[in-house]
Design a protein around this nucleic acid. Structure first.
Lengths: 209, 209
DNA sequence: CTTACTTCGACCAAGGTGGTCTATTTATAT
DNA sequence: ATATAAATAGACCACCTTGGTCGAAGTAAG
């Protein structure tokens, strides 16, 4: 794998993107190394020179994906922010950030989660699980629930706000489908999103008098 | 196809379930007729006797799925009910009802939607689209928005309630994963769900004084 | 000119593809 | 009981894709 780490960044990215995309859209078995090399525009031999087998390529990708997720997580999510909705802003920026730079990463990880364990070595499965737990912790630990309205259980409020933001994002993403993120002016969408969050505050926070 | 329609219901169901499952979990190209016949416990020849080609089987399934969805829709969704959340109860019952009797139907339709148009004939694509529109209409037409709190736009409230119920269902479904619906006592879960809906009313409806 | 490394893609055996066909069983009709 | 027709299984077909190999050509360095 040394030989792979040494490549120019652009070729490396082409290969990683191609491979992640292939494993995102197909199960391990159905994913095709032939399609990967074609999409990455390299010869068949090279892929098996860099990664000796399909399986080891797969494991490399999983590890790579975890690494990216963790980097972005510490970068974007400020777990000292006590206001839940403010913290969710960071989470949204994280998702968009990953989406811009690695469009298929979430899809890939989702596919990995569905995979029969046999293809995902125990240590990687463990790291994935750990990542999930830590992500939850970073999202929910130390939230100030005093701000929430008192006629609804605060755990419920956390979930409701989460689901609402999830729904909003899905709708937005569907609307922006096909368009190229890189050359898109996102600022107005953020503005709208912030307004949406303010609305959530109006709904779920105590009314200031 | 006549020959197929005549079969005993149990064998018919075995074949339909196997085929829908296969096309739900794989794209058209990747779906395998071999796996279908093995799973349905019939000989290879029979499948191609009933449906002459893979493509025509696929189209039969799509048509079949649309039919089921429409039946359930008129059965469960009462579009004369003016209270949105009450109407959503029907929608939830519809989903569970379909899920019980055809576990992979939603997944299948989702997969069909993703398919490159070429494999889905225009007329079926049109029927699918029409079904979606009518479903939306049955959900949202004639809703009494007077009940909603007035400090938030009522269209937003409709969406927020929808997303919240969606999130709740997903969470519940994840919790019940793997368990067999048929032999499951659902009543307590409905109870909890109704309580959840009452909470949504508290949040999104005008407070009665 | 030699040595070492990179790159490609033809090639391999193995196995899966949609679809056909024959042989046999089962049901129906006379 | 006999003849005819329908239902059924699965071996088989030609074709394609699979993960992986390997030799040859290209490139760079010493």
């Amino acid at each position: 794998m040394k030989s792979f780490d040494i490549l120019d960044e652009t070729k490396k990215k082409r290969i990683l993107d191609a491979a992640i995309n292939e494993f995102a859209e197909n199960s391990y078995e159905q994913a095709s190394t032939n399609r990967i090399v074609k999409s990455a525009q390299i010869g068949k031999g090279m892929l098996f020179h860099y990664f000796k087998t399909k399986q080891s390529l797969y494991e490399y990708l999983i590890s790579h994906a975890i690494q990216i997720m963790e980097e972005f997580s510490v970068l974007y999510i400020d777990d000292s922010e006590p206001d839940f909705i403010e913290r969710m802003k960071g989470s949204a920026k994280l998702k968009i950030g990953i989406y811009e730079q690695h469009p298929d990463l979430f899809h890939f990880i989702g596919q990995v989660m569905l995979e029969k364990e046999s293809k995902v070595p125990a240590t990687l499965a463990h790291r994935l699980h750990q990542m999930q737990l830590e992500g939850m912790a970073r999202m929910f630990n130390g939230i100030d629930t005093e701000k929430f309205r008192e006629d609804v259980d605060s755990d419920e409020i956390l979930k409701l706000i989460g689901w609402s933001i999830e729904g909003y994002s899905q709708e937005l993403l569907a609307k922006l489908d096909g368009q190229n993120f890189a050359e898109l002016e996102l600022e107005p969408y953020w503005k709208e999103f912030y307004a949406f969050l303010e609305m959530l505050k109006r709904i779920y926070y105590k009314q200031e008098v």
